[in-house]
Design a binder for these strands. Structure first.
Lengths: 165, 165
DNA sequence: TAAATACCCGAGTATTTTAGTCGGATAAAG
DNA sequence: CTTTATCCGACTAAAATACTCGGGTATTTA
């Protein structure tokens, strides 16, 4: 589980899709303008998102991309993994040497942590993020001052718990 | 909150320190050998860890590094932030333009997510990771078959909950 | 005090990743 | 048949990563 600006671009684009794709497909050109990401780069990202069946494409005029399933059913870990698909696994996960050595122990500890992060991100869906924001916008209007991050954050925790975390 | 192999190196080295530093300081040379990380690279990472007061150094023969406080008091987010200190913040968090635009909305959503990840990793200490492993090793001996990851994982969740997540 | 150990530090560098360009091909709509 | 838009591969500038090199300096031990 790697977390770089590349994944951020992908999540951002998918969030844009979730927000703007309610009435028909959204073109990459539109996302490119709104999110200030180069069109060609988006094309590359969406090629991977499509291979991983997170989005579906509609070609021709009026076409674009739409989420391949409900935003509740697409989580952040899915998106990040999709665009990062690469040649990783540098740890000694099966090497003959390094049997129960200290190195292997720490590598396993890292793998565990990595898995925890993955599970955590699996529990956060696109819908989850957009709903959270809507809740915040509403409550900001109500309180006329804006919530502090502490407040928003406890909201997050509640959601996380509801999602089995 | 960025999560790359750089952070992995740092966490790995700190885990090595937590595991091997119980009787006196640990030299970078030792960590370098055990974890297969170049000495000079470790020096660079530890310079940052030291600046952030996560480790303390002891110079001269028999010297090395030790954790600056108990492993319970050092969390993964601390470590990763320490070695990543760099020129980030590419989002539009204060630009005059982009006021309440769609771009800004998705950028904020990303920031929220980023913060959630940070808080999550703040809840995982070095002690937490090493203890988890010890528990696993023991229970593996008891069951004589090894736990599946599902089992380990639910353990993780319990820890996470205990830590306010 | 001399030698060895090990941290400290900055400059340089090969490799990889990131983010993007370019030029085209294919599919659908009007 | 032209426009819109996805598809696709190759190529590239810039940045980050991981590492080397060549010196220091503090501390211990002989």
């Amino acid at each position: 589980m790697k977390l770089t600006t590349r994944g951020r671009y992908a999540v951002t684009a998918m969030l844009d899709l979730a927000l703007n794709g309610k009435q028909g497909p959204v073109s990459l050109a539109a996302i490119s303008q709104r999110q200030e990401i180069s069109l060609s780069y988006l094309e590359q990202l969406f090629a991977k998102l499509r291979k991983n069946e997170l989005v579906a494409s509609v070609r021709g005029p009026g076409g674009g991309y739409r989420l391949s399933r409900d935003s509740e059913q697409i989580n952040v870990a899915d998106i990040i993994s999709a665009v990062n698909e690469s040649t990783d696994s540098t740890s000694c996960q099966g090497k003959g040497d390094c049997q129960n050595g200290e190195a292997c122990l720490t590598h396993q500890l890292w793998d565990d942590l990595s898995q925890q992060i993955h599970v955590f991100l699996s529990g956060i869906s696109l819908a989850n993020l957009t709903q959270r924001r809507e809740v915040k916008v509403v409550s900001e209007r109500q309180t006329r001052g804006g919530l502090e991050d502490a407040g928003m954050y406890s909201e997050t925790l509640i959601n996380a718990k509801a999602l089995n975390l």
